[in-house]
Design a binder for these strands. Sequence first.
DNA 1: TGAAACATACCGTCTGGACGGTTTTTTTCA
DNA 2: TGAAAAAAACCGTCCAGACGGTATGTTTCA
Lengths: 190, 190
Amino acid sequence: MMTRLQRKNNPAALRLRLLDCAAQLIVEHGLPALTLDGVAREAGVSKGGLLHHYSSKDALIGGLFEMVVDWFGGQVEAAIDPDETRPARFSRAYLQVIAQIDMSVPSEKRLAVLILMLSSDPHFCARWTSWVEAQLREHQATDQSPVARCMRLAADGLWLSDLGGGPDSVATVRHEILQFLETLGTGRQS
Amino acid sequence: MMTRLQRKNNPAALRLRLLDCAAQLIVEHGLPALTLDGVAREAGVSKGGLLHHYSSKDALIGGLFEMVVDWFGGQVEAAIDPDETRPARFSRAYLQVIAQIDMSVPSEKRLAVLILMLSSDPHFCARWTSWVEAQLREHQATDQSPVARCMRLAADGLWLSDLGGGPDSVATVRHEILQFLETLGTGRQS
DNA sequence: TGAAACATACCGTCTGGACGGTTTTTTTCA
DNA sequence: TGAAAAAAACCGTCCAGACGGTATGTTTCA
């Protein structure tokens, strides 16, 4: 028996769940496996219900992209130590967020989706680039050195590597890499 | 008028053309746009003809996998200096191949983009990973250090960055990064 | 009560691929 | 050698199901 007070509808939560299920499908079975029927089934809702919130497949994908970018941006911003004055301040936070991804946690699979979307659609790619460039302008005093750039590039590589569960995503190896990158950042400035 | 001697069929060439057209479709319109009808049409052959050579869509995609892995593997192998004795021998070659990809050369760009796009397929990821791991076993004496790993990770990042034409793909910046990575490799060993 | 939130039913198109042919090339063997 | 036999290459048609999307309900809630 159900209590009277609990509301049956929770559209905001459903929208989130829809995006998460879409992400899950993409990560587990590749982009072509993303279907409206599949997402609806996974989210325990009818296709009509899905289409009520995202009026087309493109709208769904677009929503997914925005959510993931927003999420990542927030994470990075939160990871920037306000008292930090060393060079590569932003890049270090960028690396830290990516390094801390635990692919066994469902919500963090969102990041994997981001990379998949980037590598498949030039439109999203351009959007991502513009985000990065904006961040770079904001932190141009600290994050334009080759060291900083390499940190971010390695972070991207690590990110990509997490997708396939390659050798660099093993915990101990990963830790070694991160330590090395850390010493790199503190060492010098170009 | 046609000479008698020329053969009408050329199955090997057709198989190549089929893979080529498939690659083109993926690069231009994304992985979900890869259809048997589309490939057959583009290659100027019937769908039956296509299915004769690749008995299913999976088989066709599998053919693409092998093609790109072979290509990249060959490039790296060719880039390894046989007289080289320094550490990170393999990783340096790996980086060099990626760094030398000229996105303004269509054939190179197609292969490079294709590989990234295929990354959205878990099967491809597994295959790619197994290749990397095999290479790593072969070069375990020289390429297991954090420095070597970071070189490869940064190479992957650079690759991804090339896709979107981000700030790190600008020639001068790129050169700076590569120089920095080079000094990294010669510096020390873990 | 009416607007938002969802469900159900349905449609037109596309897609993978099965199938039975025909033509071309290679192999067999007398 | 060369004709017969086998195999490979390729074509055109057809179909069951999946897919994105619409149209029309029914329920929920402010």
